[in-house]
Amino acid sequence: MYCLIGAEVAIFAIFVVAYVFYIGKSLSGPTPKDVLHAPILFTICLLSSSLTIQLAERELVRGKTNAFVSWWLLTIALGGAFLFGTALEWRHLIFDERLTISTNLFGTTYYSLVGLHASHVTLGLVALTIVALFGLLGHVRKEHAERVAVLSLYWHFVDAVWVVVFTVVYVVGV
């Protein structure tokens, strides 16, 4: 898993470099300043989901499968909220601001970077949901803690990446 995360870090790094490199290089509008609003609320959702997954893991290690499932479901809900937030933002950008991936360089790099992250969140959610289903059916027990830990490691990684993406896109980039 650490190796996979290493590989992912390299991929994200390249996208981030591209984003930073192209800041302010668009030949036409709209610019980030005009259209971006930092999604603080949804960021909080995502980041707190790191906490809840940690709690879920702890409960599992202790063998409290019910508590585990609840925290786990909460994590999924928070992740889902984040995705929903991204969807809202994109809807706003595409239909109100007329910014699409082919509008200008900002559009290209923005949708690619945020999209790459969102696709990782989606992937994570799918995996989390599968575990949740197993959990609801009562198949996740203490001895699976190690495997669950791997998944939660991935989830932490996705969160950490968001911190970087957020900084680059909503702080440095505007």
């Binding site: 192209y22 290089k25 991936i101 082919s102 200008n104 559009g107 290209t108 690619s112």
Partner: peptide, 14 residues
């Protein structure tokens, strides 16, 4: 395929 401009020198890409 999505009309991006990463390497599109006509749109300021590099």
């Amino acid at each position: 395929h999505l009309g991006g401009h990463f390497f599109d020198t006509q749109a300021g890409g590099s």
